[in-house]
Amino acid sequence: MLNLFKPRPTSYADRLSDTETTFTVKRGESLLSSALSAGIKWPFKCKVGSCGTCKCKLIDGKIKAQLDFGYVLDMSEIQDGYILACQSILKSDIQVSVNLTK
């Protein structure tokens, strides 16, 4: 469950805690886009931050939200660390937990 990856200048690593899958996220690219490019069947629907289908739990690391998550996620979810993958740009290596069976 610990993040073992150090930030690199052009990309960050994302580790899925449930499956122990690791993939690279290009700097400036959304977590969801990179996951889909890596062949991960990440649930999504709208890709513009309005449906909440791509939500995941940030276990470790820092992200920058591109849109306000408050329109889609409850306050309790935000406080618990939930983020929208389609609107998250990585600021460090991160570790997330996501339900891939949705």
């Binding site: 709208c46 513009v48 931050g49 309005s50 449906c51 849109l67 329109y71 889609v72």
Partner: peptide, 10 residues
């Protein structure tokens, strides 16, 4: 801007 993203696209 908000209606387009949160209503129209959804």
């Amino acid at each position: 801007t908000y209606a387009h993203v949160y209503n129209h696209h959804l």
